[in-house]
Design a protein around this nucleic acid. Structure first.
Length: 477
RNA sequence: GGGGUCGUGAGCUAACCUGGUAUGCUGCCAGCUUUGGGAGCUGGUUGUCAGAGUUCAAAUCUCUGCGACCCCA
């Protein structure tokens, strides 16, 4: 890498190019080609996420990507929020269509008419469905690979319950899932914010979103989970029959982890000046073996390395690099690609029944006996994962500030990250204050921290009225 | 949405101002050679974003479109 991570914007573009994460040459704005280097990681992320959702009672399904115009328009707030960025299909072959079809920007309006048919009685509840798919939104903001594209890859889980309590429990479960996967498995720190009323998902009662930070201190929204209440069930007639034989509207939630965007957070969070760094379980290649050959011993080293590769392949994703490049070139190449464990093997090692094991995160090299190597790799891999996770979390926690005045906010914003400020209200009446702060400091109000117990003191930084709540401000992507 | 920078083989780039044969590096292919932190030699390989205009002549000048990056909202 020729650029430093301190200059994040350049680093981001550079790593995408150097590590072949994204091919930008497809000539359609906001649409990118995702080649194998990135797609492999995204697939692993998908599997981990899908497995977790299924473990928690969700079942997979696939819904059509086209939505008839009248479905999309059935819930009024939802339409208002999404229609400005919908791609429409209006023509098929030579003919104009009688009814325009929307390319799904999200699938509520594709799924819920079907949910209405699927659900009859209480025994059909809860209904927990997810699908892995692409969605399309004609973003008007500047597009950026993985972070904001007009087509992106995600999972959307849509659940229906008989009671409000159960739906609220589901929102909590979604947050736990996010903790478990994003925090635990991917090593990405974040805070769950309850979005202010003026910034919730179109059609939702409440929105909770996991916000992480990028290396430049700007925040990026990752999965969000929404309490939909009965807004959609009433619009789409999603009803069940209760004990008294009465029809009742279901209580709904939805949850949307955008895999392509989480991937951006993943490599931005853990990458360094040498290139990518992946948690062990997400690395497309987990172990790379570099043979150190001399002309006269080439055959022998090759045989040993191939044997080692085969043995390790039973447990890990392994590559051996026999290309005609120098070892140094190979080290740099595979470090750029984020391979967690590198094994160097030459005659020197073979004579000792050993190899040299190097770790991507720390760069440490040490000699390891071939006997028991599998366990060493496993151990170092796990240690790498927890090391980069800890590093990320401790960096992140240093970027949560608080301020109680205009000047304090201005100063804290400069440091990057989140700034907790006293605020008048997170209901609609607070919006003008948010607008004012946005105008003045280019910050967005992300909402109140989920689980925050502390009562606010002082005055709203926006308007000076007595504060009723702590909200968090940050510059955002 | 506003402002700025820009588009030349697969990648980076020179030539553009002042119109006339398109430069170099990297990559890729073949061969030789080499391998414990980005080796070397020889040969080969592909190009002016699209369209229109001005001109004897356009990578170069003009307009439109498409696309990229940066800053701001």
């Amino acid at each position: 890498m020729d650029v430093q991570k301190e200059n994040f914007s350049e680093w981001y573009n550079e790593i995408i190019k150097e590590a072949h994460l994204c091919d930008l040459r497809y000539n359609l704005k906001g649409f990118v080609v995702i080649p194998p280097n990135a797609a492999q990681v995204m697939k692993l992320m998908y599997r981990i996420y899908e497995e977790a959702l299924e473990r928690k009672g969700h079942r997979p399904a696939y819904f059509p990507s086209l939505i008839p115009e009248r479905n999309l328009k059935a819930e009024s707030e939802h339409v208002e929020g999404f229609v400005p960025e919908v791609f429409w299909v209006t023509r098929a072959g030579a003919n104009e269509l009688e009814e325009a079809m929307a390319m799904r920007p999200t699938s509520e309006t594709a799924m819920y008419p079907m949910f209405a048919l699927w659900i009859n009685g209480k025994s059909d509840l809860p209904l927990k469905i997810y699908q892995s798919c692409q969605v399309w939104r004609h973003e008007t903001k500047a597009t950026k690979p993985f972070i904001r594209t007009r087509e992106f890859y995600w999972i959307e889980a849509h659940d229906v319950f008989a009671t409000e309590e159960e739906a609220l429990m589901q929102v909590r479960e979604d947050m736990e899932t996010t903790d478990e996967i994003l925090g635990g498995r991917f090593g990405i720190p974040f805070i769950f914010f309850k979005r202010p009323q003026w910034d919730k998902f179109a059609g939702a009662v409440d929105t909770y979103a996991a916000d992480t930070l990028m290396p430049d201190g700007k925040t990026l929204q990752l999965p969000s989970t929404h309490m939909l209440g009965q807004n959609f069930s009433k619009a789409f007639d999603v009803k069940y029959m209760d004990e008294d034989g009465m029809h009742q509207f279901g209580w709904q939630t939805c949850y949307g982890p955008a895999i392509s965007r989480i991937y951006a957070a993943l490599f931005s969070m853990h990458g360094d000046n040498r290139g990518l760094v992946y948690p062990f379980e997400l690395a497309p290649v987990q172990v790379v073996i570099i043979p150190i050959v001399k002309k006269d011993t080439e055959a022998e080293v090759r045989k040993k390395v191939e044997g080692l590769k085969e043995a390790l392949s039973a447990h890990f994703r392994v590559e051996a690099d026999f290309s005609n490049n120098t070892p140094g070139f190979k080290y740099n190449k595979w470090e750029l690609l984020g391979v967690p464990i590198r094994i160097e093997m030459g005659m020197r090692d073979i004579r000792k029944g050993a190899c040299v094991l190097a770790r991507r995160d720390t760069g440490e090299k040490r000699e390891v006996k071939l006997e028991g190597l599998e366990n060493e790799v496993r151990k170092e891999g796990a240690s790498l994962t927890s090391n980069i996770r800890e590093k990320a979390f401790s960096w992140f926690s240093g970027l949560v500030h608080s301020a109680d005045s205009d000047s304090g906010l201005a100063k804290a914003v400069e440091k990057g990250g989140f700034v907790r400020i006293p605020f008048c209200s997170d209901r609609m009446e607070g919006e003008p204050c948010a607008e004012r702060l946005k105008e003045k400091y280019s910050v967005n109000i992300r909402g109140s921290r989920y689980g925050e117990k502390e009562r606010p003191s002082g005055k709203c930084v926006g308007c000076g009225k007595p504060a009723t709540i702590y909200l968090y401000a940050a510059r955002q992507y």
